[in-house]
Nucleic acid binder design. Structure first.
Length: 840
DNA sequence: CGAGAATAGTTTTTT
DNA sequence: ACTATTCTCG
C-alpha cells in the first residue's frame, strides 16, 4: 500500500506507527477513545497491535507513558512488550506500567496495604506454603485430611477468592456439607495467614480489589493516573482480575482488552471466559475488532487448526485466514512407546537440520535447532525426550518442570530469609526450625504451635520469650511480638523440656541475631550469615549430592546480586517478592543452538517453524481427568489448538502405541483430536509397502476411511497391534554426535534440569562400548508366561505361523514378540488380546 | 528424638 | 515412579 502523506509532523509519525499494519490492526491501534475489545486469533499480530497502540497513544495522542498501564499474564510478556516499545518510544518506555496482574497488585499492596491492615513486610505464600497452612487449619479444626484432602479444600478456597468471595461470602452462597467444611477451613486459614503476616496468590488480587473498594482515595489515585488501561490475554483473567480492571478504568473508561476465547486454557485456574461476554454487557458501547489474518502459519496448518477447533460448540465464531502458502503436509505418526516416539522426533530433527530432505518434506529446509519445539501435555513426558536427546547428542532446553525456586535447598534458604524479614512467618519457621537437625522434634513443635495459638502470637515470638531476658523487640522488627500477651502466657510456657528449650533458644538466637544486624548487611551478607550460622551449609555438604545442591544455592545467591543496588532496607523484601512472583518460564532464553521441550500450556504465545506435538493419545490429550466433562474436553481441544497454531511451517502429531505410566506401561488409543485433522492435510505414508517408513498416520487414516470417527476411536486391537508391529521398525537414528555436544544446556538457572543428577540412561550406561547401537529391547531371557515361552511355535489368525522370540510380563498381561514367517516380520503382541495359538 | 523403612497418595496445566 | 507422610526401632 502506498503511504500518503497527510502533512504535518504528527501525520508522519502516525504513518510510521501504522505502517505495515492491516486495516483491522490499524483500527485497533487508533481506536483510543472508550472501551475496546480486540479478539485476536493466533498469529494475528496481537503483540504488534498492543505495542503500536501504546506507541500511538504516546507519540501521536501525546499521552505520557506514565499514564498507561498494560497488564499481561506472564512476566515474559510484560518484558517483551517493554522491549518492543523501546525502538518506538526510547527511554520513555520505562515509565510505562507493564506487568502481570499479580506483580501490579503486589506493588499496590506494598505501597498502600496498610490502609487495609496489611503488614508492611507481608510475604507472599506460594502453593506449597498455602498447603501447609490448610493442613494446619485442618488439624486445628480436627478434620480428617483423608476425608477432606487439603488440595481440594485449597482449590475451593482459591476459586472462592478468585470470585471475590471471602469466607463469609462463600458461606452465604453454598449449602452442602462439603462447602461447610471449606468455609470453616477458609476462616481458619485466613486467621493463620493474618497471623503470619502473609498473603497468598489469590489475595494479591482480592485484597487489591478490597483496597480500592474500601479506600476511595487510594482508588482514585490510580484511576486518575491510568488514562489508558490495557489487558492482554483477557481470556485468562478471572472474575477478580477483571473486577480490578474495571475499578481502574472507572474514571477514564479507556479500557482495552485483548484476547482469544479459543486459546482459553486456564479455566482450571479459575480463568473465566465469561469475562469476554461480560465486557460487552459492562461496556455496551465497546468497539469490537477482530484480528483474523494470520501471519504465522502455512495454510495447511491453519486449516488443520480450524477443523480442530470447529468441533467445539462453545465458541465465538472467528475465521482465520492467511496469505501464506500451502506449505508442507502435516505428519501424523505412531511409535511403539514413548521411547520410539522420541526417537522419531530425533531422527526427524536430524533430517531437518542436516538441511537435506525431510522424510516428508519437499524442499531443503535450512532449519536450525532453535527453530524446533517439542510440545507435550504433561511435564513427565519430557523425560523420554530428554533421554533421547542425550543419547543422540541433540542439545535441548527444558522449559519449566521442576522449578529452580522450588528446589528444596533453595526453598530452605528462602524460608530463612523470609523468617528474617518477617518473624511472623510460621510456615517458614516450621520449615527450617529443625534444619539442620537441632533436636527439635514433633512434640516440641506441637507444643510450640499450641502455645503460640493460645497466646495469639507467632511461634517465633514464643521462642523469643523463652530466653526471658532477651525480650522485647530489640532483636526483631517492631511487629515481631505483642509483648503483653506473651508475658501473660509465660508461666504456661514451661512444659518444654530443658533440652528442647535450649534448642529453641539457640534457633531463636541464630535468626534473631541476623535480623538484628540486618541493617548493617547487604543481601549477600545476609545469605552468607544464614548459611554459616544456621549450620545449613555444613550440613548440606555432608548430605547426598550436597555439593551439587550447594551449587544451586550459590546460583540463588548470585541471583540476589541484582538487588544490591536497592537500599539495604528494602533489598530483602524486594528480593523475596521477586522470588515469589517470577516464574521460570519468564526467563526462558531464545537459543539458536538447542531444541525446546515445553508443555502446551507454556507454549502459548510462542511460535516455532517446526513443532512436534507428542502424546497425541486419549488420556493424555485429552487428559484422562477431562474426558468425562464436555466443558473440560473443550478446553483440552483448545489446548491442542494452541499447540497446532504455534507451528509456522511444519507440524508433527505423534503418539505412542503404549506408554509408561507410574512404573507400568499401558496401551493407549489415538487422540480423538487426530480425527479432526482432514486427511488431505496429512502427509501420505512415505513408503507404504515397507515397514521401515515410520509413518504410521495410516492407523488413523484407515480408521477414518473405514467408518465414522467413533468406530475409529475404538480402533480394534488388531489394528493397534498392526501399527505397533510396523512401528517397531522405525530405524533408530545414528548416534551422530554421541557424547560430544551432548550436555544439558542448562546455563541459566531458569532452564531447569529435570533430575538433579544428569545420569545418562541406564541402557546407555550399561553398554558404553557401543553407544551408537541401541541395545535390543530386553535382551535378557524373559520369564515364561502361562503358556508361551521363547522358541514356541505359534499361529496367528492374520499373520500366520511364527516363532516366539521374547515374552515378558507387562502389567497384568504378557507382551510376546513373534517372528513370523512369510514376510509378516517381527511383531509385538499382547498375549491377552492377540488371536494366537500355540502349535505342537 | 532421629533415622530409616514402610506405606499411601499422586500430577494436568501455573500467575 | 516419585514423594510425602507415618511407623518402628535404637
Amino acid at each position: 500500500m502506498v503511504s500518503r502523506r497527510q502533512g504535518g509532523r504528527a501525520g508522519s509519525v502516525s504513518e510510521q506507527i501504522l505502517d505495515g499494519l492491516n486495516s483491522n490492526q490499524r483500527d485497533a491501534v487508533t481506536a483510543i477513545d472508550g472501551p475496546l475489545l480486540i479478539v485476536a486469533g493466533p498469529g494475528s499480530g496481537k503483540t504488534r497491535v498492543i505495542t503500536h497502540r501504546i506507541a500511538y497513544l504516546v507519540r501521536v495522542v501525546g499521552i505520557t507513558p506514565y499514564r498507561i498501564a498494560a497488564v499481561t499474564f506472564t512476566n515474559k510478556a510484560a518484558r517483551e512488550m517493554r522491549q518492543r516499545l523501546f525502538p518506538l518510544l526510547g527511554q520513555a518506555a520505562e515509565q510505562l506500567t507493564a506487568s502481570t496482574f499479580h506483580a501490579f497488585c503486589a506493588n499496590v499492596l506494598r505501597r498502600e496495604g496498610e490502609h487495609i491492615g496489611l503488614d508492611r513486610d507481608f510475604v507472599i505464600y506460594d502453593d506449597a506454603d498455602q498447603m501447609a497452612l490448610v493442613k494446619r487449619a485442618l488439624i486445628e479444626l480436627e478434620l480428617d485430611p483423608k476425608r477432606f484432602p487439603p488440595r481440594a479444600i485449597l482449590s475451593g478456597i482459591s476459586s472462592a477468592k478468585s470470585e471475590l468471595l471471602g469466607s463469609d461470602g462463600l458461606a452465604h452462597r453454598s449449602g452442602s456439607y462439603w462447602d461447610e467444611i471449606v468455609v470453616r477451613t477458609y476462616e481458619r486459614y485466613e486467621d493463620l495467614l493474618r497471623q503470619c503476616s502473609a498473603v497468598d496468590f489469590d489475595d494479591l488480587i482480592l485484597r487489591t480489589y478490597q483496597l480500592f473498594e474500601h479506600v476511595p482515595d487510594v482508588a482514585r489515585k490510580y484511576q486518575e493516573r491510568y488514562v489508558h488501561f490495557m489487558v492482554d490475554e483477557f481470556q485468562d483473567t478471572n472474575i477478580a482480575q477483571y473486577a480490578i480492571a474495571k475499578q481502574l478504568a472507572r474514571h477514564h473508561l479507556n479500557i482495552c482488552v485483548v484476547g482469544d476465547p479459543d486459546q482459553s486454557i486456564y479455566t482450571w485456574r479459575n480463568a473465566d471466559i465469561r469475562n469476554i461476554l461480560s465486557f460487552q454487557d459492562d461496556y455496551p458501547k465497546a468497539k469490537l475488532i477482530a484480528l483474523e489474518e494470520n501471519y504465522r502459519s502455512t495454510q495447511t496448518i491453519l486449516d488443520a487448526a480450524r477443523s480442530l477447533i470447529a468441533s467445539n460448540t462453545q465458541r465465538v465464531e472467528k475465521d482465520l485466514w492467511t496469505r501464506n502458502g500451502e506449505g508442507v503436509p502435516i505428519t501424523i505418526a505412531e511409535g511403539y512407546d514413548e521411547e520410539e516416539e522420541a526417537q522419531f522426533v530425533i531422527r526427524e530433527i536430524q533430517h531437518l537440520t542436516r538441511n537435506s530432505e525431510a522424510v516428508v518434506g519437499r524442499k531443503p529446509s535450512g532449519v536450525g535447532l532453535g527453530d524446533i519445539a517439542v510440545m507435550y501435555r504433561v511435564n513427565a513426558q519430557s523425560r523420554a525426550l530428554e533421554e533421547a536427546c542425550l543419547r543422540y547428542g541433540v542439545p535441548y532446553q527444558v522449559v519449566g518442570g521442576m522449578k529452580f525456586y522450588q528446589r528444596q535447598e533453595v526453598k530452605d534458604i528462602i524460608a530463612y530469609l523470609r523468617l528474617i524479614a518477617n518473624p511472623n512467618d510460621d510456615v517458614s519457621l516450621n520449615r527450617v526450625i529443625n534444619l539442620p537437625t537441632r533436636g527439635i522434634g514433633q512434640r516440641t513443635l506441637d507444643h510450640l504451635a499450641r502455645i503460640a495459638r493460645d497466646a495469639g502470637t507467632s511461634q517465633f515470638a514464643v521462642i523469643q520469650s523463652l530466653s526471658g531476658d532477651a525480650q522485647p523487640g530489640q532483636a526483631m522488627s517492631a511487629n515481631a511480638l505483642s509483648g503483653e500477651s506473651i508475658a501473660m502466657q509465660s508461666p504456661a510456657i514451661s512444659p518444654f523440656t530443658a533440652r528442647a528449650k535450649t534448642s529453641l533458644i539457640a534457633f531463636g538466637n541464630i535468626v534473631g541475631g541476623i535480623a538484628a544486624e540486618r541493617d548493617n548487611m547487604d543481601l549477600l551478607d545476609i545469605i552468607d550469615a544464614v548459611l554459616e550460622r544456621s549450620g545449613y551449609q555444613r550440613w548440606l555438604l555432608s548430605q547426598e549430592r550436597g555439593e551439587e545442591r550447594m551449587e544451586n544455592i550459590q546460583e540463588f545467591r548470585a541471583s540476589a546480586r541484582e538487588f544490591l543496588h536497592v537500599g539495604m532496607e528494602e533489598a530483602l523484601t524486594a528480593f523475596l517478592e521477586s522470588v515469589s512472583l517470577v516464574a521460570d518460564v519468564d526467563s526462558m532464553e531464545e537459543r539458536v543452538d538447542a531444541i525446546t521441550l515445553i508443555t502446551l500450556h507454556q507454549a502459548k504465545g510462542l511460535e516455532f517453524p517446526v513443532v512436534f506435538m507428542v502424546g497425541m493419545e486419549e488420556g493424555l490429550l485429552p487428559h484422562s481427568r477431562s474426558v468425562d466433562d464436555p466443558t473440560q474436553l473443550e478446553e483440552e481441544r483448545r489446548l491442542c489448538y494452541v499447540g497446532v497454531t504455534r507451528a509456522k511451517e511444519r507440524l508433527y502429531l505423534l503418539r505412542a502405541f503404549r506408554r509408561g505410566f507410574r512404573g507400568g506401561s499401558e496401551p493407549g488409543m489415538p487422540s480423538r483430536f487426530l480425527l479432526d485433522i482432514p486427511q488431505e492435510l496429512q502427509a501420505a505414508p512415505s513408503q507404504p509397502k515397507r515397514p521401515g517408513a515410520g509413518n504410521l498416520g495410516s492407523t488413523t487414516r484407515r480408521a477414518k476411511t473405514s467408518g465414522g470417527r467413533q468406530t475409529s476411536l475404538t480402533a480394534s486391537d488388531e489394528r493397534r497391534r498392526e501399527s505397533a508391529a510396523r512401528s517397531q521398525h522405525i530405524t533408530p537414528p545414528s548416534a551422530g554426535a554421541r557424547q560430544s555436544g551432548n550436555q544439558r544446556v542448562s546455563g541459566k538457572r531458569t532452564i531447569t534440569q529435570r533430575s538433579t543428577n544428569p545420569t545418562p540412561t541406564r541402557r546407555f550406561g550399561r553398554a558404553p562400548s557401543v553407544p551408537g547401537q541401541r541395545p535390543i529391547r530386553g535382551g535378557n531371557t524373559a520369564p515364561s508366561s502361562p503358556h508361551l515361552t521363547t522358541g514356541d511355535k505359534v499361529m496367528h489368525k492374520v499373520f500366520g505361523e511364527g516363532i516366539v522370540t521374547e515374552c515378558k510380563p507387562t502389567g497384568n498381561d504378557f507382551e510376546v514378540t513373534v517372528a513370523f514367517r512369510d514376510g509378516a516380520g517381527i511383531k509385538r503382541l499382547l498375549l491377552g488380546m492377540a488371536p494366537l495359538e500355540k502349535l505342537d
